Computed example of a mutant assay.
Amino acid sequence: MTQQVALFVTCLVDLMRPRIGFAAIRALEAAGCDVIVPQGQTCCGQPALNSGDHAHAAALAKQTIEALEPYAAIVVPSGSCAGTIRCHYPEIFEGDADWLPRAQAVAAKTYEVMAYLDEVLGWKPESISIDATATYHDSCSGLRELGIKAQPRRLLKAIDGLRLAPLAGEETCCGFGGTFCVKYPAISNAIVGEKADAIDATGADLLLAGDLGCLMNMAGKLHRDGSTVRAFHAIELIAGMGDGPAIGEEP
């Protein structure tokens, strides 16, 4: 039986690297899903929420809930956006008798895409190969809010020829932190500098993660430091799209 899922693309993927969205669709379809991309989606409200702008965060949350609630499952190629919907939407509407149950219902059926493929569907990529060594960074929101850790690694281990190199401090923040990197650029740059050094020390060809914001931050620092490590969202490799331009290489 085909499972219908709604893809919440995220505004960063939509604006900066749409191929992540297409990779998510390809992997989900390979796993037997019928993927719908709801037209009413925009931003989940995370930047406003992180900045203390409760009114705008709530407005965006309402818009997102209305766009997503008709679907049986919602998948997101971002641990931070999935975490916002799953963990923080019910907090936003705490005490609101009308919106709290709607927020809770949407939260309960929202999944990070790799967790959905691995845990819910029990799927693994087939007939995909890449001769490379990769290292993996665990993004903060996905790891701490959703427990995204083993799921992407299980999927990646099914790719022929791909070797995974351990990353020192793999669970340590990369310094992006959404609006943190804008508010505290010097601290952010110091943190990502340490992360870039650790990535280079692995000897890996590829840097993988599950959040585009983190990947853009790390890829930018690696590029500025002259590193040859190329960055991809893990779902790109899992979907067989690891032969395209890396993050930051697009024309």
Rank of each mutant, 00 (worst) to 15 (best):
Y111V: 06
G203D: 00
P185Q: 09
R144M: 13
A165F: 00
I148F: 10
H88V: 09
E91C: 09
V120L: 09
D138R: 12
L162P: 07
F176K: 06
E126G: 11
I92N: 08
A186K: 14
W123Q: 08
A209N: 09
A115H: 04
L164Y: 02
D200S: 06
F93T: 08
Y111G: 04
E194P: 03
R154D: 09
L117N: 13
A165T: 01
E126K: 15
M114K: 00
P152I: 07
E194L: 13
L100C: 02
P152M: 10
F180C: 04
S129C: 12
C87Q: 15
P101S: 04
A132H: 08
L155R: 06
I159P: 13
D98L: 05
Y89L: 08
V113M: 07
V120S: 10
A168F: 00
G203Y: 00
D96L: 06
G178Q: 06
T179P: 09
L208M: 03
R154C: 09
T202Q: 05
D118Y: 12
D98R: 05
H137Q: 15
G142R: 14
D160K: 13
L100K: 03
I128Q: 14
E194W: 05
L207G: 03
A190Y: 00
A201N: 01
C214N: 01
H137T: 05
A168Y: 00
P125C: 11
L143C: 10
F93M: 06
A190R: 01
G147T: 12
L155I: 09
V192H: 14
A158K: 09
T133L: 05
G203I: 00
T133P: 08
E126C: 10
G169M: 02
A204F: 01
D131W: 05
A204E: 00
L117D: 09
K157T: 06
P152K: 07
M114L: 10
A132M: 07
G161P: 01
L162A: 08
V120A: 14
E91P: 03
D118Q: 11
I191Y: 06
A105Y: 02
L207D: 01
I159W: 14
D197H: 13
L212H: 01
E171Y: 06
P90N: 09
K149S: 15
L121E: 02
Y136R: 12
A132E: 03
E119P: 00
L208Y: 02
A158F: 09
E94Q: 12
A196P: 01
I187C: 04
R163F: 07
E91Y: 11
T202F: 02
K109H: 08
E91H: 12
V106M: 00
R102L: 06
D200I: 01
I130R: 14
D160V: 13
L146W: 12
K109F: 08
